[in-house]
Structures are given as C-alpha cells and as structure tokens.
Design a protein around this nucleic acid. Structure first.
Lengths: 242, 242
DNA sequence: CGCGCAATTGATTGATGTCAATTGGAGTGG
DNA sequence: CCACTCCAATTGACATCAATCAATTGCGCG
C-alpha cells in the first residue's frame, strides 16, 4: 500500500476489516498529490470537481461564507479523511474546503472511485459509511451549537478531536498537535473571536486543557468528557461487518 | 408502484431519472407500515435497527437529548424522506427520530435494501445521495446556528421547507401545512420558546410570512430568500446522471 | 362554563458580540 | 544586539441578543 493511502485504510479499518484484495484496490487508486498553505482553498464552493480529495497531513475545514463576510466552518477534517467524497454524488459543492494549516492532499478521480466501488461493493459501503459518519459529526455539532453552552461546546469538540486523531495515530497520550488560530476555532464553534478566547481560558482555568497554540493537552480527560456530556457513539469507532 | 413508494420515487427522481425496472425494484420492497401520534418515537437513540423508515405522511425530526432535559432537533423530515437510511451502515443510532405531528412511516428491512442496491448500483448511488443531501442540509443548519441571526435562521429554514415540500407535491403555491408547535420550532432552531415566538413575530411584522400554527404562507418569497441569503444549491434539486 | 394546552407578553438576568486598546512573541533589517 | 513590525492573543468597557421567570391571553373541547 502506498504511503498516501495508509491514512485512508486506517480510517476505514477502524470500522470494519479490509481484505488483502480490498487494500490492494485502494492502494492502486491513482492520486495527484498537492500541498497547500494555511488559508488556501482546496476545493471551491460551487465548483463541480471530478476528483475527491483525501487529506494526508494537516487540518482542513469545510467553510460556508455569508454576505457580511463572516464564515462558518461546518466541520474540521484530519489526515485520513476523504473530505469531499460526497462530491462524487452531489456534483456541485455547497461549501468550500479550506486549509487551516499547511497540508497535503491526494486528489482521486471520481471515475476510478466508481471503478473501485463496482469492483468491491463492500469498499463502496465503507466509503458510503464515511460520508454518513461525517453527517453524524455534523449532527453532534448542531446539538452543540443549539443547546450547549460555549465552553461545553468547545470541550465536546476537543474530546471528539482526540478520539478522531487517535484513530489515525496522531496523538501522544492525551495530547496532539493543534496549530490553529483562535479565529479558526471561533469560526468552528460559531462564536466571536473575543468570546472564543474567553471560553478557552475558562477550560484552562478549570484545569481541563492546556493549549499554547501549537500543542493541545487534555489535562483531565474523564472530567472533560463528563463536562461536555461526550458520548462517542456517533463516531462509530467499532469494528463491525458493514 | 405501490402507494407507499410514490413519495420515495418522487424524491429520488428529483435528482436523476429512474428507469422502469428501477421503479419496479423500489415498488417491490417489503414494507411494514405504521402510524405514530405526535410526540412518539419512531426510532430510539442507541437502538440498532434492522430496518430503515421512510416517511409517508406528517413531519418527523431527528432529536438529540441533553442531561438538563433540553433537546435539539438536528433535522426535520418530510414525506418521501428515508429518515434513518444511514442506520444501514451506522448500525447504532446516535439520535432518535420523533414524530412532530401524527404521521405514517414504512419500515423497510435492511437486507432487502441491500438486495436492491446489489441489483441496481444506480439506485444504490441515489440512496447514498439521499444520505449525502441530509448531510448538506445539516451543514446549512450549522451555518445558520453559528452565523445567522435568529430571524434569518428561521427565514432560511422556511425557505428550505417550501422547496423540499414542493418536491413532493405538498405545497399550494407559496403555502403549505405546517402544524408544528412553536416549542418544536424552538428546538429546531436552537432558541428558547419565548425567543422563538418573538422571532416568528418579527418575520410576520416584516411581511414575509403568515402562520397561524397550521398553514404557513410565504407572503414575499423573493424578499424571504434575500433576507435569509438562501441559496438552494445544497438541496441538489437538479436532474443529473449520478 | 371551565379546563388545559399553546401562544403571547413583560420584566429581568445572563451570555455573547462589538469596539478599542494593549500585550507578547517571532521575524526582519539595520 | 537592538529597534521595528506584524500578527495573534488577551483585556476592558459597553451594547445587544437571547434565556429565564412569571403572568396573561386565546382557543378548542368536554
């Protein structure tokens, strides 16, 4: 398996077993590898991409823009995530994908994805699954935005990130690299920059996290989960026949 | 085609052409039809359903509950929507599905869905598409919650509902039956009941809508769209080969 | 007529946004 | 090495939005 697809296989295998042939199929997908700087757009809103992009390194997010210039990041994505796989069916992008840090992505043509899916309906279902988990993550986000207090929302997001990053081997114990700007976190949790700053300070002063802008460390995981009412069911981190 | 699947076929056909055989396949799906009263649960959180449910009449919503007893409705669903199709892959429900009005639903066994998908990859893709559109709708909701003022959020939701209901023939011009309680609307847009009431009044006083608790009438559609910055791209109401 | 649910209103509190500085640290050129 | 600049983080003061508490109204129904 080529280096590029380790992360993908790892993500898929977190939810079901891949046979050797299936791994083969994935590793033979053609991919155009590209590097982006923080702030660049990987995929533009209203574009009609003929390839989907798999994140290899760095953090990216889906973004929607409003007339007043503000922006909401509707989801954050990590290495191993097939960010715009849904474009395979949606045809027209309803949001753009932006780099939050410098990152690398592999662009895979839709027609070769279709070929893989036809060759292996099981891999097809696992890809379908990954779009459906994206939906579950967005549902959790809706609930956080609608009904959780700011600090709990942020605590929930951090809890989720730790688990998702563990899946792809990007944690060291309870800490992980998280070189985002507070302004990006603000757009992620739907708050103003100033209030985001105060919210972060609250989690710090509660002794739940440490974050210097580069490394996020969860100081008290059990407490963080309890505080955020975090239930990882929606991430489907269970191996099952699918 | 049996009566039950008219709505489903109609929803799918809004996005692509179905051949006669494909319609056949759909119409032959076995279905257990059930009726629910407002407030009842169609599918429970943490359940592991072996069937997915297609809404035939009425309004239902996905709901997530919090420890303090509050609730967020992460999406509203209409006749023709295959609400918990994603359970086919997710296995465990991360939310429950509740009836907002009295409603009817058809429960379709997962194994017969898998059979249809294997018989027709194209229908499979259209079902995949429908889960992916649910995701797009949730993204729009995230943006509304995070970055739109309350009244604009509500205006956006109403704009969306009109279009989605048109798709399944449930509108009369710019009006449609909408027998929800304001408390449900509150849980849908993430506001308190009192503030929801005032938000509705604002849209009324701006001359955008009329709503007596049963029938919603959009008085000035162009203005409503403009006010909400409504861009229907995300609903994918375009016929294309998928 | 009276009950009960849903809608509405008023008053108040609390959370969050906005505006305007200020601080701190990394890089840059002299 | 030191000023200087720039960007991000932080702080304070204040305005605005939304939640909460507590009535009150309106309507359908027995």
């Amino acid at each position: 398996m080529t280096e590029e697809f380790c992360a993908l296989a790892r993500t898929l295998e977190r939810r079901d077993v891949l046979s050797g042939e299936e791994q083969q199929l994935l590793s033979q997908l053609p991919a155009r590898k590209r590097r982006f700087a923080a702030g660049e757009e990987l995929v533009a809103e209203h574009a009609e991409p003929s390839e989907s992009c798999l994140i290899l390194s760095g953090f990216v997010a889906r973004a929607q823009f409003l007339a007043d210039g503000s922006r909401q990041l509707t989801a954050i994505h990590l290495p191993g995530d097939f960010v715009d796989l849904h474009a395979l069916l949606l045809k027209v992008m309803d949001h753009s994908v932006v780099a939050l840090t410098s990152c690398e992505a592999a662009f895979v043509p839709h027609n070769s994805l279709v070929a893989v899916i036809e060759a292996s309906p099981h891999v097809g279902r696992l890809l379908w699954l990954s779009t459906v988990i994206d939906g579950a993550i967005e549902r959790a986000c809706v609930t956080s935005l609608g009904r959780r207090a700011a600090a709990k929302h942020l605590a929930h997001l951090i809890s989720e990130l730790l688990l998702r990053l563990e899946t792809v081997g990007l944690t060291r114990g309870n800490s992980f690299d998280f070189p985002l700007k507070q302004a990006d976190v603000a757009d992620l949790i739907g708050l103003s920059l100033v209030h985001t700053n105060r919210t972060i300070q609250e989690l710090r002063s509660q002794g739940l996290i440490r974050w210097d802008g580069r490394v996020m460390t969860i100081t008290d995981l059990a407490q963080l989960h309890k505080y955020a009412e975090f239930d990882p069911t929606y991430l489907n981190l269970v191996k099952r026949p699918r």
